[in-house]
């Protein structure tokens, strides 16, 4: 019997009552659906997708601000591909580009800095979104830009940190029996950030890798904690995650960013959950030059992304799902990103 079959058999043995486990990482959402993991599990195990896809939790107000900035002909707006089709209140970066704005896709913030070096006469703005996984890389590039006194490279930060959102979920009465904790985020942060969730909220937490056997083993470890009535933080993804995380990356983040209150789709304002750029680096801060971003914007009518992201609704229970809202013409952010719960559900399970 191979490892996957073995784990599935052990999960079946261990699973007694209905349980709800949530992952909060777009990579896990995608892996679970691509591998067809749900089809191997007993019906009593529900896997929910939480607020782990950066594009999905970012407010329409951020897109509106980006479009306002890009309407300036001096500006080259650079972005990861995921954001390009996210609807703002009155259009997306894609429609902005079609109407003549200079919007360019990049694969890394370094690429954006490179554009700024090549076009010193233009203002290059990079849309910084993502959690602890991407924030250190952006911090490094901001520091690089400052040290070369680059006066035409800016970051519009919508970076967020994960633990406050996980805490907000559990403190608002959403029933969860365990967290499949994000593997990539944890390589940076280490495992200590989940301790209070386990201790104070009594939720089992297991940091998971992304292969089939990783995810199945994580589910098994969570089930064991549930059955034993314990709640602790375990690392399944030991080949990548150390308890102390990556101190160098954490220090870089700390040096460039400060914590601020931020708005999350489905969860609203969460204290100290967002990352703004520190004053020492304001020469690179797009908000300093172009004005403060209001993250919260007008949400599309009828869109239930907020309820989906907090595990209160499955994508198919949303009235817009599959009719008004499809990957080709998304109404809500969760249908845009390949890591979004709704798109993933639409593509692999519907």
């Amino acid at each position: 019997m191979n490892r996957v079959d073995e784990l599935v058999a052990m999960i079946r043995c261990e699973n007694r009552s209905p349980v709800r486990f949530m992952e909060v990482c777009g990579g896990h959402t995608l892996a679970i659906n691509q591998l067809g993991i749900r089809s191997l599990l007993p019906d009593k195990i529900s896997l929910l997708s939480g607020p782990g896809c950066p594009v999905c939790v970012t407010g329409t107000g951020y897109i509106d601000s980006a479009l306002r900035i890009a309407s300036n002909p001096e500006v080259i707006l650079t972005t990861f591909g995921d954001l390009i089709r996210v609807p703002g209140s009155e259009g997306s970066l894609e429609t902005g580009r079609a109407s003549g704005m200079d919007v360019r896709l990049v694969l890394s913030p370094l690429h954006a800095l490179q554009i700024a070096r090549q076009e010193p006469g233009r203002q290059v703005v990079f849309l910084g979104i993502g959690f602890e996984t991407t924030a250190p890389g952006v911090a490094a590039v901001i520091r690089m830009a400052r040290s070369e006194k680059r006066d035409n490279f800016f970051v519009l930060s919508a970076h967020k940190v994960m633990p406050p959102a996980m805490d907000a979920l559990t403190s608002r009465g959403i029933r969860l029996d365990g967290f499949i904790c994000p593997g990539h985020v944890s390589t940076i942060t280490g495992s200590a950030i989940y301790k209070s969730l386990a201790r104070d909220r009594h939720i089992p937490c297991v940091i998971s890798g992304f292969e089939a056997a990783d995810i199945l083993e994580t589910i098994l470890l969570l089930l064991r904690q549930v059955n034993q009535g314990t709640a602790s933080v375990e690392i399944q993804y030991t080949r990548a995650v150390r308890p102390e995380g990556n101190p160098r990356a954490l220090q870089l983040m700390e040096e460039v960013f400060y914590r601020r209150d931020d708005w999350w789709r489905g969860l609203g304002i969460i204290p100290a959950s967002g990352l703004g750029i520190r004053d020492e680096f304001r020469a690179q801060d797009a908000e300093y030059l172009f004005g403060r971003v209001t993250m919260q914007g007008t949400e599309p009518a009828g869109c239930a992304c907020g309820s989906v992201l907090t595990g209160q609704m499955t994508p198919s229970e949303c009235g817009l799902f599959g009719s008004v809202c499809t990957p080709d013409s998304p109404a809500g952010a969760c249908m845009v990103s390949s890591e979004g719960a709704c798109q993933s559900y639409f593509r692999f399970l519907q």
Partner: peptide, 16 residues
């Protein structure tokens, strides 16, 4: 599609 681990998933048309 029968996935590499023996699960199943739907294949849908490319969007975007």
């Amino acid at each position: 599609m029968e996935t590499t681990i023996g699960g199943t998933r739907l294949i849908t048309m490319l969007s975007g």
